[in-house]
Amino acid sequence: MRIAVRAFNDNPGSPVLVFGNALGTRMPLWTSVAARLADDFQIFLTDLPGHTVSTGDSLAEAAAPLTIEQLASCVVESLAELGVESFTYCGVSISGAVGLTLALNHPEALTGLVACATAEKFGTPESWDERIGEVRSDGTKGLVDDTADRWFAAGFLGEDIATGHLILTDLALVDDEAYIAAASALKTYDVSGKLGSITTPTLVMAGTQDPGCTPEAMSEMAEQIEGARFVTVPDSAHLPMVEHPEIVVDHIQEFCGQL
Protein backbone atom coordinates (compact mmCIF):
# COMPACT_ATOMS: atom_id res chain seq x y z
CA MET A 1 0.00 0.00 0.00
CA ARG A 2 1.59 3.27 -1.12
CA ILE A 3 0.94 6.98 -0.72
CA ALA A 4 1.17 8.77 -4.05
CA VAL A 5 3.45 11.83 -3.81
CA ARG A 6 3.96 14.44 -6.51
CA ALA A 7 6.11 17.57 -6.45
CA PHE A 8 3.95 20.65 -7.03
CA ASN A 9 6.83 22.97 -7.90
CA ASP A 10 10.59 23.08 -8.30
CA ASN A 11 12.00 25.18 -5.48
CA PRO A 12 15.00 23.23 -4.11
CA GLY A 13 16.56 24.42 -0.89
CA SER A 14 13.30 25.92 0.38
CA PRO A 15 11.41 24.61 3.43
CA VAL A 16 9.31 21.58 2.51
CA LEU A 17 5.52 21.59 2.84
CA VAL A 18 3.56 18.37 2.32
CA PHE A 19 -0.21 18.44 1.87
CA GLY A 20 -2.58 15.54 2.63
CA ASN A 21 -6.19 15.22 1.48
CA ALA A 22 -9.58 14.46 2.97
CA LEU A 23 -11.29 11.12 2.41
CA GLY A 24 -12.79 11.03 -1.08
CA THR A 25 -10.78 13.97 -2.44
CA ARG A 26 -7.78 14.19 -4.74
CA MET A 27 -4.55 16.16 -5.09
CA PRO A 28 -6.22 19.34 -6.45
CA LEU A 29 -7.89 19.90 -3.06
CA TRP A 30 -4.92 21.97 -1.84
CA THR A 31 -3.80 23.54 -5.12
CA SER A 32 -5.25 27.02 -4.46
CA VAL A 33 -3.22 27.10 -1.25
CA ALA A 34 -0.14 25.49 -2.76
CA ALA A 35 -0.03 27.95 -5.66
CA ARG A 36 0.05 30.89 -3.26
CA LEU A 37 2.93 29.33 -1.31
CA ALA A 38 5.00 28.04 -4.22
CA ASP A 39 7.52 30.90 -4.21
CA ASP A 40 8.56 30.29 -0.60
CA PHE A 41 8.35 26.50 -0.20
CA GLN A 42 9.12 23.24 -1.92
CA ILE A 43 5.65 21.68 -2.04
CA PHE A 44 4.55 18.07 -2.36
CA LEU A 45 0.96 16.89 -2.77
CA THR A 46 -0.09 13.45 -1.58
CA ASP A 47 -3.06 11.20 -2.23
CA LEU A 48 -4.63 8.43 -0.21
CA PRO A 49 -4.10 4.96 -1.70
CA GLY A 50 -6.15 4.44 -4.85
CA HIS A 51 -7.67 7.92 -4.84
CA THR A 52 -5.92 9.32 -7.89
CA VAL A 53 -2.90 7.36 -9.02
CA SER A 54 -2.92 3.60 -9.35
CA THR A 55 -0.03 2.09 -7.41
CA GLY A 56 -0.66 -1.47 -8.51
CA ASP A 57 -1.95 -2.48 -5.09
CA SER A 58 -5.25 -4.34 -4.92
CA LEU A 59 -7.26 -2.53 -2.28
CA ALA A 60 -10.09 -5.02 -2.58
CA GLU A 61 -7.80 -7.97 -1.85
CA ALA A 62 -5.49 -6.43 0.75
CA ALA A 63 -4.29 -9.03 3.21
CA ALA A 64 -4.86 -6.79 6.22
CA PRO A 65 -7.00 -3.72 6.88
CA LEU A 66 -5.41 -0.36 6.15
CA THR A 67 -4.55 1.73 9.24
CA ILE A 68 -3.72 5.37 9.86
CA GLU A 69 -0.38 4.22 11.30
CA GLN A 70 0.43 2.57 7.97
CA LEU A 71 -0.51 5.71 6.07
CA ALA A 72 1.75 7.83 8.28
CA SER A 73 4.66 5.46 7.76
CA CYS A 74 4.03 5.46 4.00
CA VAL A 75 4.21 9.26 3.92
CA VAL A 76 7.65 9.17 5.52
CA GLU A 77 8.86 6.35 3.28
CA SER A 78 7.53 7.85 0.05
CA LEU A 79 9.11 11.23 0.78
CA ALA A 80 12.41 9.62 1.78
CA GLU A 81 12.52 7.96 -1.64
CA LEU A 82 12.42 11.48 -3.10
CA GLY A 83 15.24 12.63 -0.82
CA VAL A 84 12.98 14.46 1.65
CA GLU A 85 13.90 13.57 5.23
CA SER A 86 12.08 16.37 7.11
CA PHE A 87 9.02 18.45 6.31
CA THR A 88 6.04 20.38 7.62
CA TYR A 89 2.87 18.38 7.11
CA CYS A 90 -0.52 19.98 6.42
CA GLY A 91 -3.34 17.46 6.61
CA VAL A 92 -7.12 17.81 6.60
CA SER A 93 -9.65 15.36 8.03
CA ILE A 94 -8.24 11.81 7.60
CA SER A 95 -4.89 13.36 6.65
CA GLY A 96 -5.08 15.47 9.78
CA ALA A 97 -5.25 12.14 11.59
CA VAL A 98 -2.21 11.06 9.57
CA GLY A 99 -0.47 14.26 10.68
CA LEU A 100 -1.21 13.67 14.36
CA THR A 101 0.05 10.11 13.97
CA LEU A 102 3.21 11.38 12.28
CA ALA A 103 3.78 13.65 15.27
CA LEU A 104 3.30 10.72 17.64
CA ASN A 105 5.19 8.01 15.73
CA HIS A 106 7.65 9.88 13.50
CA PRO A 107 8.48 13.17 15.24
CA GLU A 108 12.01 13.14 13.82
CA ALA A 109 10.56 13.67 10.33
CA LEU A 110 8.41 16.69 11.21
CA THR A 111 9.48 20.31 11.40
CA GLY A 112 5.87 21.37 11.93
CA LEU A 113 2.27 20.14 11.75
CA VAL A 114 -0.88 21.86 10.50
CA ALA A 115 -3.87 19.79 11.63
CA CYS A 116 -6.95 21.01 9.81
CA ALA A 117 -10.56 19.94 10.41
CA THR A 118 -9.57 16.72 12.15
CA ALA A 119 -10.08 14.82 15.39
CA GLU A 120 -8.67 12.36 17.90
CA LYS A 121 -11.21 9.86 16.58
CA PHE A 122 -13.98 10.02 14.00
CA GLY A 123 -17.44 8.68 14.69
CA THR A 124 -17.96 5.11 15.85
CA PRO A 125 -17.23 1.73 14.29
CA GLU A 126 -20.96 1.42 13.68
CA SER A 127 -21.18 4.75 11.84
CA TRP A 128 -18.27 3.75 9.61
CA ASP A 129 -19.85 0.38 8.90
CA GLU A 130 -22.95 2.27 7.81
CA ARG A 131 -20.92 4.56 5.54
CA ILE A 132 -19.05 1.61 4.04
CA GLY A 133 -22.35 -0.16 3.43
CA GLU A 134 -23.65 2.89 1.56
CA VAL A 135 -20.61 2.90 -0.70
CA ARG A 136 -20.89 -0.83 -1.38
CA SER A 137 -24.55 -0.32 -2.28
CA ASP A 138 -24.50 2.94 -4.26
CA GLY A 139 -20.84 3.83 -4.82
CA THR A 140 -19.16 7.05 -3.76
CA LYS A 141 -21.49 9.00 -6.04
CA GLY A 142 -24.28 8.20 -3.59
CA LEU A 143 -22.46 10.19 -0.90
CA VAL A 144 -22.26 13.48 -2.79
CA ASP A 145 -25.42 15.24 -1.57
CA ASP A 146 -24.93 14.56 2.15
CA THR A 147 -21.19 15.21 1.91
CA ALA A 148 -21.73 18.60 0.27
CA ASP A 149 -23.57 19.77 3.39
CA ARG A 150 -20.65 18.71 5.60
CA TRP A 151 -17.81 19.94 3.42
CA PHE A 152 -19.02 23.43 2.54
CA ALA A 153 -20.62 26.29 4.44
CA ALA A 154 -24.15 27.32 3.60
CA GLY A 155 -24.33 29.22 0.32
CA PHE A 156 -20.84 28.41 -0.95
CA LEU A 157 -21.91 26.02 -3.70
CA GLY A 158 -24.47 28.58 -4.90
CA GLU A 159 -21.75 31.11 -5.64
CA ASP A 160 -20.14 31.33 -9.05
CA ILE A 161 -17.13 29.27 -7.95
CA ALA A 162 -16.34 26.03 -9.76
CA THR A 163 -13.92 24.61 -7.20
CA GLY A 164 -16.48 23.16 -4.81
CA HIS A 165 -18.32 21.34 -7.58
CA LEU A 166 -15.05 19.96 -8.96
CA ILE A 167 -14.16 18.59 -5.52
CA LEU A 168 -17.57 16.88 -5.28
CA THR A 169 -17.08 15.44 -8.76
CA ASP A 170 -13.79 13.95 -7.56
CA LEU A 171 -15.70 12.29 -4.72
CA ALA A 172 -18.15 10.74 -7.18
CA LEU A 173 -15.26 9.39 -9.27
CA VAL A 174 -13.04 8.04 -6.50
CA ASP A 175 -12.68 4.26 -6.63
CA ASP A 176 -15.18 2.66 -4.26
CA GLU A 177 -12.69 0.17 -2.80
CA ALA A 178 -10.13 2.92 -2.25
CA TYR A 179 -12.71 4.91 -0.32
CA ILE A 180 -13.72 1.87 1.71
CA ALA A 181 -10.10 1.05 2.55
CA ALA A 182 -9.49 4.56 3.89
CA ALA A 183 -12.83 4.60 5.73
CA SER A 184 -11.87 1.32 7.38
CA ALA A 185 -8.67 2.95 8.61
CA LEU A 186 -10.73 5.68 10.27
CA LYS A 187 -12.92 3.02 11.85
CA THR A 188 -9.98 1.87 14.00
CA TYR A 189 -8.22 5.23 14.43
CA ASP A 190 -8.20 6.65 17.98
CA VAL A 191 -5.45 8.77 19.54
CA SER A 192 -7.55 9.95 22.46
CA GLY A 193 -5.39 10.72 25.48
CA LYS A 194 -2.14 10.62 23.50
CA LEU A 195 -1.83 14.14 22.16
CA GLY A 196 -0.07 15.42 25.25
CA SER A 197 3.09 13.65 24.14
CA ILE A 198 3.32 15.59 20.86
CA THR A 199 6.38 17.86 20.79
CA THR A 200 6.17 18.99 17.15
CA PRO A 201 5.18 22.67 16.72
CA THR A 202 1.50 22.46 15.80
CA LEU A 203 -1.15 24.68 14.26
CA VAL A 204 -4.74 23.47 14.69
CA MET A 205 -7.19 24.96 12.18
CA ALA A 206 -10.99 24.70 12.20
CA GLY A 207 -13.77 25.93 9.95
CA THR A 208 -16.30 27.92 11.96
CA GLN A 209 -19.23 26.05 10.38
CA ASP A 210 -17.75 22.54 10.39
CA PRO A 211 -20.54 20.28 11.72
CA GLY A 212 -18.25 17.34 12.45
CA CYS A 213 -14.86 18.64 13.56
CA THR A 214 -16.34 21.63 15.34
CA PRO A 215 -14.27 24.62 16.46
CA GLU A 216 -15.09 23.75 20.06
CA ALA A 217 -13.84 20.18 19.71
CA MET A 218 -10.72 21.25 17.84
CA SER A 219 -9.94 23.94 20.41
CA GLU A 220 -10.10 21.29 23.12
CA MET A 221 -7.81 19.09 21.04
CA ALA A 222 -5.31 21.93 20.62
CA GLU A 223 -5.23 22.50 24.35
CA GLN A 224 -3.84 18.98 24.82
CA ILE A 225 -0.79 19.74 22.63
CA GLU A 226 1.80 21.81 24.43
CA GLY A 227 2.37 25.12 22.68
CA ALA A 228 -0.17 24.44 19.92
CA ARG A 229 -1.81 27.42 18.27
CA PHE A 230 -5.54 27.30 17.44
CA VAL A 231 -7.17 29.34 14.66
CA THR A 232 -10.53 29.36 12.88
CA VAL A 233 -11.43 30.15 9.28
CA PRO A 234 -14.68 32.13 9.10
CA ASP A 235 -17.56 31.19 6.81
CA SER A 236 -16.14 27.75 6.10
CA ALA A 237 -16.99 24.17 6.99
CA HIS A 238 -14.86 21.03 6.63
CA LEU A 239 -12.72 22.17 3.67
CA PRO A 240 -11.58 25.74 4.41
CA MET A 241 -8.70 25.43 1.93
CA VAL A 242 -11.34 25.33 -0.81
CA GLU A 243 -13.65 28.03 0.54
CA HIS A 244 -11.04 30.53 1.77
CA PRO A 245 -7.57 29.57 0.52
CA GLU A 246 -6.22 33.07 1.10
CA ILE A 247 -7.01 32.91 4.83
CA VAL A 248 -5.56 29.41 5.13
CA VAL A 249 -2.39 30.62 3.38
CA ASP A 250 -2.03 33.53 5.81
CA HIS A 251 -2.24 31.15 8.78
CA ILE A 252 0.25 28.69 7.28
CA GLN A 253 2.73 31.45 6.39
CA GLU A 254 2.56 32.94 9.86
CA PHE A 255 2.98 29.53 11.48
CA CYS A 256 5.87 28.45 9.28
CA GLY A 257 7.56 31.81 9.79
CA GLN A 258 7.85 30.95 13.50
CA LEU A 259 9.41 27.50 13.02
Rank of each mutant, 00 (worst) to 15 (best):
7 A>K: 12
102 L>F: 01
169 T>C: 01
153 A>K: 02
148 A>F: 02
75 V>I: 12
194 K>C: 10
117 A>S: 15
151 W>R: 10
73 S>C: 03
120 E>T: 11
178 A>D: 03
70 Q>T: 02
190 D>S: 08
64 A>P: 00
178 A>S: 11
96 G>I: 09
238 H>D: 06
13 G>I: 08
14 S>V: 01
147 T>I: 04
198 I>W: 01
177 E>A: 13
23 L>K: 14
144 V>P: 11
101 T>P: 09
24 G>C: 05
98 V>G: 09
187 K>F: 00
98 V>D: 12
62 A>C: 04
162 A>H: 08
128 W>N: 10
42 Q>L: 12
114 V>P: 09
97 A>T: 02
120 E>P: 00
123 G>W: 10
237 A>W: 07
66 L>K: 09
82 L>Y: 07
196 G>V: 04
137 S>E: 14
19 F>A: 03
112 G>D: 06
215 P>I: 11
175 D>V: 00
203 L>I: 11
242 V>L: 08
50 G>S: 09
114 V>Y: 07
180 I>A: 01
5 V>R: 07
158 G>L: 11
226 E>K: 14
43 I>K: 01
151 W>T: 07
182 A>T: 08
113 L>A: 14
197 S>K: 10
73 S>L: 06
11 N>L: 05
46 T>H: 05
35 A>G: 13
79 L>W: 03
163 T>L: 14
130 E>K: 05
17 L>Y: 09
63 A>R: 12
256 C>Q: 08
256 C>Y: 00
225 I>F: 05
193 G>P: 03
170 D>C: 06
90 C>K: 02
209 Q>Y: 13
45 L>Y: 03
218 M>R: 06
254 E>P: 00
51 H>A: 13
18 V>W: 04
111 T>Y: 06
240 P>K: 11
205 M>V: 15
168 L>G: 09
220 E>S: 15
241 M>L: 08
128 W>G: 09
86 S>P: 00
18 V>Y: 05
248 V>I: 07
223 E>G: 15
59 L>P: 01
169 T>S: 11
33 V>L: 08
198 I>K: 02
239 L>H: 02
219 S>D: 05
258 Q>H: 13
222 A>T: 13
136 R>L: 11
101 T>N: 10
188 T>K: 04
69 E>Q: 09
9 N>H: 09
255 F>D: 07
10 D>E: 14
232 T>V: 14
174 V>F: 01
156 F>N: 10
239 L>A: 14
23 L>A: 12
95 S>C: 04
104 L>G: 05
192 S>T: 15
66 L>S: 07
2 R>H: 14
139 G>Q: 01
255 F>V: 08
234 P>E: 06
149 D>H: 08
124 T>C: 09
96 G>L: 10
105 N>P: 00
109 A>T: 13
179 Y>R: 10
157 L>I: 07
223 E>I: 00
42 Q>N: 10
166 L>G: 00
154 A>S: 15
56 G>K: 05
99 G>H: 03
134 E>K: 15
209 Q>C: 14
258 Q>Y: 03
64 A>F: 06
227 G>I: 13
254 E>A: 11
154 A>T: 15
111 T>F: 01
115 A>F: 03
141 K>G: 15
246 E>N: 11
70 Q>D: 00
